[in-house]
């Protein structure tokens, strides 16, 4: 007995169902952010990966959502650094661009405070230095949090993308196999 026509089910997968699952996925993603763990979202993903046919459309939608979150986090990291550089430049006449290079934006929160202190001691008085260091420390703490969220989001995004690609290949191969029935059928033949 044929349990389900895969093509039919795939075509009839209602958008409303996809949207509900997307929302569930994003709610679990938010849980990942608060728990600093990828586990809640990965369990959700694993539950759906075993479905037949593979939920490729759902994975595509979810990867879009995750990419959007990733972009927002990257932009927030960028803006955090940009704001700190602006304050240092305009209020303390200190250029911090070299201390926090843009090409190492992900490492923004991990820079050694000691080398920075030495750098600042050369150009600032004690009170100004303390104020600026406090601002830097605040920015570093925010950067560390953002970087942890970015790393989790990036890992989930890449995982979903890999699965979407793999399952897409599986689906196409499956359909390709089923559509390769003999081209010539019901041929009348006779031996004279």
């Amino acid at each position: 007995m044929k349990l389900m026509d895969e093509t039919e089910r795939d075509q009839s997968l209602p958008m409303v169902e996809i949207n509900a699952l997307r929302m569930e996925g994003m709610a679990l993603y938010e849980r990942c952010m608060t728990e600093s763990s990828t586990a809640p979202f990965e369990r959700f993903l694993e539950r759906h990966l075993v479905e037949i046919p593979p939920p490729v459309a759902l994975l595509n939608e979810i990867s879009d959502d995750l990419f959007q979150r990733l972009q927002t986090l990257r932009q927030s990291q960028f803006e955090l650094r940009d704001r700190l550089l602006y304050v240092a430049r305009n209020e303390f006449q200190v250029e911090l661009g070299e201390a926090f290079p843009l090409r190492d934006l992900e490492r923004f929160g991990y820079f050694g405070q000691q080398s920075l202190n030495e750098h600042l001691m050369r150009s600032l008085g004690a009170a100004e230095r303390a104020t600026l260091i406090a601002s830097i420390e605040e920015a570093r703490q925010a950067a560390l949090k953002l970087d942890s969220q970015r790393a989790i989001t990036e890992r989930l995004y890449e995982g979903v993308m890999d699965w979407a690609t793999a399952l897409h290949v599986v689906t196409v191969r499956g359909q390709w196999r089923t559509s390769h029935e003999p081209i010539v059928q019901n041929v009348w033949s006779a031996t004279l």
């Binding site: 990257r74 932009q75 990291q77 843009l102 992900e106």
Partner: peptide, 25 residues
């Protein structure tokens, strides 16, 4: 023009705008 992390470029335009990150994607 600067590299941003390992995922994109940040141009500073002649109108002063510089907050756009153009990711590789």
């Amino acid at each position: 023009l600067e590299l941003v992390g390992n995922y994109g470029l940040q141009p500073t335009w002649d109108d002063g705008h510089h907050t756009g990150i153009y990711t590789w994607e």
